[in-house]
C-alpha cells in the first residue's frame, strides 16, 4: 500500500455546489500521485481541540498536483471547513484506505456492464472511479459503464456532466421527481438488473441505500463494491473505532475499507 503522509497544504478552491454541498481543492503532489479511487483523506479543520477529531472525506479526483474533495456541511467541523478561503492552510493525512478493486476478474462477457450507483454526496469517490475506469486497461474497464445518480431533488444531483464527458450514460432518480425517474436510485438499479445482468456494481451513498444495493446485487448474484462511511478517529487502523460487521468479523472502515464487497458485509 502506498505510503501515508501528513502534510500542511493550502486550499486552492472551496466553493458551494448546492446548498450544503461543497467542492474543495488543495495541493499535494504526493497524495495526487499515490491516490487510488475509493481512498480518502482525513482532514483536521482547526488546530484547536473542539472539534477534536479529523474528518474523513473521499477523494473526488486528481488534477495534476491537486486533490479534489466534495463534502456536505453537517456540523461544526464541516462548517469551519466551509469558512476557509483559498490560500488558507489545511492539515491532511492521506491517502488512506482500500479503494475500489479494478483487478477482480468478474466472469465478464462483452455484453456485461458496470453499474455505478451514487446516492447524494456518495457521488464523490465515484467520479474518481469513473475517470480511472476510463483510463484503465483491466478487463473490468473494457465493459460499458452505466451511472445511476440519486438524490432528494434536482439541485442535489451532482457530477452528471463529469460522467457524461467520460462517455458514460447517466440515469437520474430523484425522490420528488424533479429530475429523471421519480423514486429511489435503487429502484432504477433493480429495473436495470431485471433487463440485463451487470458484471459489477460500484456504489457509494447513505447506508440504507447501500444495503438496498447489496440486496439487489445478492439476489442477482452480481458482485458489488460498496464504499462505506462510519464515525472515525485515526483513519489508519490504530484505534479500531470505525468497524463494520463482516463475515470475517469486525473490519475497520478506515484501513480494511472503506470499500467492501457486498457479499462480505453483515447489515
Amino acid at each position: 500500500m502506498a505510503r501515508i503522509t501528513q502534510l500542511k497544504t493550502r486550499i486552492v478552491c472551496n466553493r458551494e455546489l448546492a446548498e450544503s454541498y461543497r467542492y474543495l481543492e488543495f495541493e499535494s503532489s504526493c497524495i495526487a500521485k499515490a491516490a487510488l479511487p475509493g481512498q480518502f483523506v482525513n482532514i483536521r479543520v482547526s488546530g484547536t481541540s473542539d472539534p477534536l477529531l479529523r474528518r474523513p472525506l473521499s477523494i473526488h479526483g486528481i488534477k495534476g498536483r491537486r486533490v479534489k474533495v466534495l463534502y456536505e456541511v453537517v456540523g461544526k467541523a464541516t462548517g469551519i471547513l466551509a469558512s476557509k478561503k483559498p490560500g488558507d492552510s489545511l492539515d491532511i493525512l492521506g491517502p488512506l484506505g482500500n479503494g475500489f478493486n479494478l483487478d477482480r476478474a468478474a466472469p465478464f462477457s462483452a455484453k456485461e456492464s458496470n453499474i455505478v450507483v451514487a446516492g447524494g454526496m456518495g457521488v464523490a469517490p465515484l467520479v474518481f472511479l469513473a475517470e480511472t475506469l476510463k483510463k484503465s486497461k483491466t478487463q473490468i474497464a473494457q465493459a460499458e459503464t452505466i451511472v445511476l445518480i440519486g438524490a432528494k431533488t434536482k439541485k442535489f444531483i451532482l457530477c452528471r456532466k463529469e460522467f457524461e464527458a467520460l462517455g458514460f450514460s447517466v440515469r437520474i432518480a430523484t425522490d420528488d421527481g424533479s429530475l429523471g425517474f421519480k423514486g429511489k436510485v435503487t429502484d432504477l438499479l433493480n429495473s436495470f438488473c431485471g433487463k440485463t445482468r451487470p458484471g459489477m456494481i460500484f456504489s457509494c451513498g447513505p447506508r440504507p441505500m447501500l444495503q438496498a444495493v447489496a440486496l439487489a446485487a445478492a439476489e442477482k448474484n452480481i458482485p458489488a463494491q460498496l464504499s462505506l462511511e462510519e464515525y472515525m478517529a485515526c483513519g489508519i487502523g490504530a484505534c479500531l473505532g470505525c468497524v463494520v460487521s463482516t463475515r470475517q468479523g469486525y473490519k475497520t472502515v478506515c484501513k480494511d475499507g472503506p470499500v467492501f464487497f457486498g457479499e462480505d458485509l453483515i447489515w
Binding site: 472539534p51 477534536l52 478517529a233
Partner: peptide, 21 residues
C-alpha cells in the same frame, strides 16, 4: 470487541467503546 458505533466526538474529547478488540 464491542458493536459499532464505537466512537463519538464530545466537546474537546471523544468517547470510545472499542472494548479491547
Amino acid at each position: 470487541g464491542n458493536p459499532p458505533p464505537r466512537i463519538c466526538e464530545t466537546p474537546s474529547g471523544m468517547l470510545n467503546s472499542v472494548g479491547l478488540e
